[in-house]
């Protein structure tokens, strides 16, 4: 015969199940609302993964995915036997890492500095001005950038020649092209990128600042010892997500700014594939390129997340 305690122990999970079920029933509308995006996610993001198969096949639309013949990794062999693809891969990594090192911290610093501005009006104007370039496409921005750096009409060359120097064709110079890419990318996304950090800063408990003040901390100390540590979890999440996109070095930006003289340093995977017309009707090859980029991206996310979890309590999951 079971004791009262034993019965209680046995019936505990059942009660828990009942509680969960009751709770779910209570929130059925919320679950229903969640189901819609989940179904969409499944239909548009998971079912199509079946199509990844064509990266390993000679895809023929007439035969369909399954009946198209396997091609013994031919697309990947072709990718890695093309020295221009290898060069594009190297350029992609270099540009992306430079952007990660230089551009990624910029919105964080900008958000922290913006937070320190006392005049609300000046703060709002600064924010609005910094958001503006984000809403313009690279087609428009590239025309502006090319004009600014023009050897004949550009303001920079005007200053150089005014002081007796020789005009420099910055946009066709391998040495100056990458710094221009980095700077213009930073200019375009600085304000927009700062929004998420500003939002995080507003959620910091004011008592932390008060406590720091009591301890005698000035504004700089508060920035370093309160604001920065408080937004660090968000910084880490953003960093890991950015790492996942390391093989996307800025297709629109580069396509609109580059020219054959700077291919050597600026031709990235996306521009090379686009220029080669390899995507047109070559679904299998394009899928192989996309798969390669995604695999690298997910590997970087997993690795970075694992390292960060080992060193701290933050991370994506």
């Amino acid at each position: 015969m079971q004791t009262v305690i034993e019965r209680a122990v046995e019936s505990k999970p059942k009660r828990k199940e009942n509680i969960n079920w009751v709770r779910m029933k209570k929130m059925k509308m919320l679950y229903f609302m969640m189901a819609i995006p989940m179904v969409m996610l499944f239909i548009f993001h998971y079912i199509p993964m079946y199509g990844i198969l064509i990266a390993f096949k000679n895809f023929s639309p007439g035969l369909g995915i399954w009946d198209s013949p396997w091609n013994n990794f031919e697309h990947f062999k072709r990718l890695f036997s093309d020295f221009l693809f290898i060069r594009a891969l190297q350029n992609t990594i270099v540009i992306s890492l430079l952007k990660l090192i230089i551009v990624f911290p910029a919105p964080i610093i900008f958000a922290i500095l913006l937070n320190e501005i006392k005049s609300e009006k000046f703060k709002k104007v600064s924010q609005s001005i910094s958001y503006l370039p984000h809403f313009m496409s690279w087609v428009i921005l590239s025309a502006m950038v090319i004009e600014v750096f023009s050897p004949q009409r550009g303001i920079i060359n005007y200053v150089i020649t005014f002081f007796g120097g020789e005009a420099i064709n910055f946009m066709s110079d391998k040495g100056s092209f990458i710094p221009i890419l980095i700077l213009t990318d930073m200019w375009k996304e600085l304000g927009w990128g700062a929004i998420i950090y500003l939002a995080t800063i507003t959620s910091i408990d004011p008592q932390l600042y008060e406590a720091a003040e009591i301890d005698g901390a000035g504004r700089f100390r508060k920035m370093i010892h309160v604001t920065l540590p408080s937004i660090m979890p968000m910084v880490i999440i953003m960093f890991i997500l950015r790492l996942g996109a390391v093989l996307n070095a800025g297709f629109d930006q580069i396509l609109n700014l580059y020219n054959p003289l700077v291919y050597e340093v600026a031709d990235i995977i996306d521009t090379y594939v686009y220029r080669s017309g390899l995507e047109q009707f070559q679904f299998d090859y394009a899928t192989a390129v996309g798969l390669f980029k995604n695999v690298i991206g997910i590997a970087l996310i997993l690795t970075a997340n694992a390292i960060i979890r080992r060193k701290s309590e933050h991370g994506i999951w």
């Binding site: 199509g51 639309p61 995915i65 390129v289």
Partner: peptide
């Protein structure tokens, strides 16, 4: 943009399997 293109191509390719 590239991801979107590749995914849309694969999405349609999978739809194609059914249609063919």
């Amino acid at each position: 943009k590239k991801y979107a293109k590749v995914l849309s191509a694969t999405a349609l390719s999978s739809a194609l399997l059914l249609t063919t």
